[in-house]
Design a protein around this nucleic acid. Structure first.
Lengths: 121, 121
DNA sequence: CAGTATCCGAAGGGATACTG
DNA sequence: CAGTATCCCTTCGGATACTG
């Protein structure tokens, strides 16, 4: 049985959603899958900055958390498709709100983030 | 000048909001500050699982990102108060949506998270 | 095409003790 | 009360090469 070394907090909604959405590319994966980009190679093309390994890992986590489901077609070459579960679909408006806020304040955010990095260590 | 070793992605709203909200306790800090819990010791009491050091760091980051502002009263013992900026206030509905989704699916999430941890390594 | 194995560095965050 | 300084370990994610 797995034992986390760093304590897990599951006290409130913010903790809980953190557990399923943390991971650098997860929200984008959900977003693109929702838009109909279902195959791993497609997602990889949509998110070229991510390594294939990490995409696979995060897709697996999303699947374990029942936000997406996976269908493997027994053909050569292999074909795989992901789709949102009903549960996963309920998250889309939330991700929309998050991304919407980010888009709305895009320039300001970019400048604040870069300013902070410049003055850091 | 600071240089990130791990690439920074600032391509879309989801990246940008990630930069300012990543950090284990940041959303909760904003939430509690919004509810009128302004002093560090108060926040510490609200979030006992976090160490004082990390709270200080994350408060500083929120301040650098102009989501909160800090007032230091020149008294002994020291007194400090944080408040949301107008910019920070625009985030509250988003955090509400995030936490709301988490609360709404609380039981299911908790069980999924724990199940995944159990079967992990 | 999809996924796995290995290796490694970066960054987050916890504990503790300390200062003003 | 508020904040800082160390120290250290966990976890995340990147690069690359490989298998079915």
């Amino acid at each position: 049985m797995y034992e986390r070394k760093i304590p897990l907090n599951l006290n409130c909604g913010l903790d809980l959603i953190g557990e399923v959405l943390y991971g650098k590319w997860k929200m984008r994966l959900l977003w693109f899958i929702n838009q109909g980009h279902k195959r791993p190679s497609e997602l990889q093309r949509k998110i070229p900055d991510a390594s294939r390994r990490v995409l696979t890992i995060q897709l697996k986590e999303l699947e374990d958390h029942e936000l997406i489901s996976k269908v493997i077609y027994p053909v050569v070459p292999p074909k795989v498709e992901y789709s949102l579960t009903d549960f996963g679909k309920t998250l889309i408006p939330v991700i929309g709100a998050i991304g919407g806020w980010g888009d709305e304040h895009e320039e300001r955010l970019r400048s604040l983030i870069l300013k902070r990095l410049d003055s850091k260590p």
